[in-house]
Lab assay of single mutants.
Amino acid sequence: VCQVIAMYDYAANNEDELSFSKGQLINVMNKDDPDWWQGEINGVTGLFPSNYVKM
């Protein structure tokens, strides 16, 4: 598990995705897919595009 910072706002398009705002910290749970990582914010988990965040 690592933390990343959102570089942009992201609004989920599907129920399994994670919405976040620019500057939010996201706990990364899974990086099996290079493009879509699984993350957690405040107890909510979902997929998000890895190119929207930085380490």
Rank of each mutant, 00 (worst) to 15 (best):
G43E: 11
L18N: 01
S50I: 08
V44F: 07
Q38G: 10
V1E: 10
P34I: 09
V4F: 13
L25F: 13
T45D: 07
Q24F: 13
G23T: 04
F20L: 08
L47D: 05
A12V: 03
D35K: 09
P34N: 15
N27C: 10
V4C: 06
S19L: 02
G43I: 01
P49Y: 07
G43C: 07
N30K: 13
S19A: 10
Q3Y: 12
V28N: 00
N27D: 05
A12I: 03
V1A: 03
N27H: 07
L18P: 01
S19R: 04
Q3I: 13
S19F: 03
V1P: 02
Q38L: 09
E15Q: 14
G39C: 00
N42C: 14
N14R: 14
M7E: 09
N30R: 12
V28D: 01
D9F: 03
D16F: 11
G39P: 01
S50K: 09
D9S: 09
L25K: 09
Y52H: 14
N51D: 13
A6M: 02
Y10T: 01
Y8T: 06
D35C: 05
C2W: 06
K54N: 08
G46Q: 00
G23F: 03
N51H: 12
V44T: 10
Q38Y: 13
A11W: 06
Y10D: 01
T45G: 11
W37C: 02
D35S: 11
D33V: 07
D32Q: 15
V53Q: 02
W36S: 07
G23Y: 10
W37H: 03
D9V: 03
T45Y: 06
Y8W: 10
Y10L: 03
I26A: 00
Q24L: 04
F48H: 00
G23H: 14
L25Q: 07
D35V: 11
P49I: 02
D9H: 12
N27Y: 08
A6I: 00
G43Y: 04
A6V: 02
M55G: 07
M29N: 04
S21L: 11
G46F: 01
N51K: 14
S21C: 10
L18C: 03
N51W: 06
I26H: 00
V1F: 15
N51R: 12
T45S: 13
F20K: 01
E15M: 08
L18M: 10
N13D: 11
W36R: 12
V28K: 00
A12M: 06
E17V: 05
T45A: 10
L18T: 01
N27L: 09
L25H: 10
G39R: 00
P49A: 04
D33I: 07
M7C: 12
S19M: 04
N30P: 02
G46D: 01
N13H: 15
E40C: 11
N13L: 14
D33C: 15
Q3F: 15
K31A: 15
D33A: 09
E40R: 09
V44L: 11
D16V: 08
Y8M: 13
Y8K: 15
F48L: 14
P34S: 13
I5V: 13
P34T: 13
I41T: 12
T45I: 07
Q3D: 04
Y10H: 06
P49V: 01
A12T: 11
D33P: 03
S21E: 08
V4L: 03
N27E: 15
F20W: 00
V4D: 02
F20M: 03
A11Q: 13
M29T: 14
M7L: 15
I26G: 01
E15G: 13
N51I: 08
L18Y: 00
Y10G: 02
V53D: 02
N30S: 12
Y8V: 10
G46Y: 01
V44R: 10
W37E: 00
S19Q: 04
W36T: 14
M7T: 11
L25G: 11
K54S: 10
I41D: 02
F48S: 01
N51F: 05
V4P: 00
K54V: 05
S50V: 12
F48M: 07
A11G: 12
D32K: 13
V53A: 09
M29R: 13
L18F: 04
Y10N: 03
E15F: 06
W36C: 13
A6L: 00
S50M: 14
P34H: 04
D9E: 06
Y8G: 09
Q24K: 06
G43T: 06
N42G: 11
S21W: 06
I41G: 03
M29V: 13
C2V: 06
V28Y: 01
S50E: 03
M7S: 15
V53R: 02
N14Q: 13
L25W: 07
G46A: 06
P34E: 15
N27T: 11
G39W: 00
Q24I: 08
P49K: 12
E17R: 12
N51E: 05
F48K: 00
Q24D: 14
L18V: 07
G46W: 01
G39E: 01
K31E: 14
D35G: 12
I26L: 09
K22M: 06
D32F: 04
V28L: 10
L25Y: 07
I41H: 14
Q24G: 09
N27F: 07
T45V: 07
D33G: 11
V53F: 03
Y10W: 11
G39H: 01
E15R: 11
S50C: 05
K54E: 11
M55T: 09
V4Q: 03
L25I: 14
M29I: 11
Y8F: 15
W37I: 02
F20S: 01
N27S: 10
Q24Y: 05
D35N: 11
I5Q: 08
N13R: 15
A12P: 05
N42K: 07
F48E: 01
S19D: 05
E17G: 11
K31R: 09
Q38S: 10
G43W: 03
G43V: 02
N51Q: 08
C2I: 06
K31Y: 07
S21N: 13
S50R: 13
S21R: 12
K31T: 15
G23D: 12
P34W: 05
W36D: 03
L47C: 04
A11C: 10
A6R: 01
L18Q: 02
W37R: 01
G43D: 10
D32P: 15
I5H: 04
W37A: 01
V28F: 01
N42R: 10
G23L: 03
N42W: 05
G43Q: 04
S21F: 06
N13W: 03
A6F: 00
E17Y: 15
W36Y: 10
V53M: 03
G23P: 00
Y52L: 15
T45N: 09
V53L: 02
D32N: 14
C2N: 15
A11I: 06
L47E: 06
K22S: 08
E17T: 05
K31H: 05
G23A: 05
F20Y: 02
N30G: 11
E17M: 11
M29H: 09
L47F: 07
Q3P: 07
N14K: 14
C2L: 04
E40S: 14
T45R: 08
F48Q: 01
G46C: 02
M55V: 07
F48W: 00
L47N: 08
G39D: 02
S50Q: 11
V44M: 04
P49T: 02
W37F: 05
V53H: 03
Q38H: 15
A6S: 09
D16T: 06
E15L: 09
K22E: 11
V4M: 11
A11H: 15
E40A: 09
D32S: 09
E40N: 05
A11D: 14
M7R: 07
V1T: 15
W37T: 01
E40W: 05
E40F: 05
S50D: 00
Y52F: 15
Y10F: 08
W37Y: 06
G43S: 12
D35Y: 08
D9N: 11
Y52T: 09
W37S: 01
Y8I: 14
Q3L: 06
Y8E: 13
